[in-house]
Simulated assay, not measured.
Amino acid sequence: MKRNGPGRLILLCGLPGSGKTTLSKRLADELPAVRLCPDEWLAGLGIDLHEADARDRLEGLFRQHAYSLLGLGQTVILEFGFWARAERDELRLRARLLGAAVELRYLDVTRDELLRRLEARNGTGAPDAAVITRNMIERWAEDFEAPGREELALFDHWNDPPA
């Protein structure tokens, strides 16, 4: 297959409610890019968005698909949240082996704002928006490894975190 030049991988990093889907849709239209959003696919398949095994399998398939697209010179947006630095490092290094540029877009939103957004979203009944409670956010925020300036400097493009 014909290569169109180096691909570009964009990782969207943040907790639920931080704006990943809104940003990925905007970027996909502007760039253009292929968006891979597990929540939308799981909902489309009728699978509970909190089903960890299904999410892990789907994200693994999305990674492989993203690497294929990057090899063809495409721009790909992965909307997984990327809570762990090890996961971000793995994707960055693998994409670089393919000659792709790698961006990290970190959506840093206060817990109060996350909770406000999720409360509004929970009330919509949207099929690709799992109900997320305050307790879930509090627990997940403890597990989340926010990228710092040193990590961000490893990417080709990033947004600066707050000082």
Rank of each mutant, 00 (worst) to 15 (best):
T22C: 03
R63C: 14
R57H: 10
L15I: 03
E40F: 05
V34C: 11
R26V: 13
P32C: 10
L31Q: 09
A33E: 03
V34E: 02
L72W: 11
H50Q: 12
G14K: 00
L58F: 13
G17T: 06
L70V: 09
E51A: 15
G71Q: 10
E40D: 14
T75K: 11
L70D: 01
A28I: 07
G14L: 02
L36R: 06
D29H: 13
C37N: 06
R57E: 12
L42V: 07
Q64W: 08
Q74F: 13
A28N: 04
R57P: 08
G44L: 10
A52G: 13
L15K: 04
T21N: 08
I77N: 00
F62W: 06
A52L: 15
L36W: 02
C37H: 00
E30L: 12
T21P: 01
L61P: 06
G17Q: 03
P38M: 07
R26F: 10
L23C: 12
L69P: 02
L70R: 03
W41N: 06
S18F: 04
R35I: 04
A33G: 07
S18Q: 07
D39C: 03
E51V: 11
T75M: 09
R57W: 10
H50N: 10
L15M: 14
E30P: 02
T22E: 01
E30S: 14
L36I: 06
T75R: 10
A28W: 02
L27F: 15
A52R: 14
E30D: 14
A33F: 07
K25P: 00
Q74Y: 12
R63V: 15
P16F: 01
D48E: 15
C37D: 01
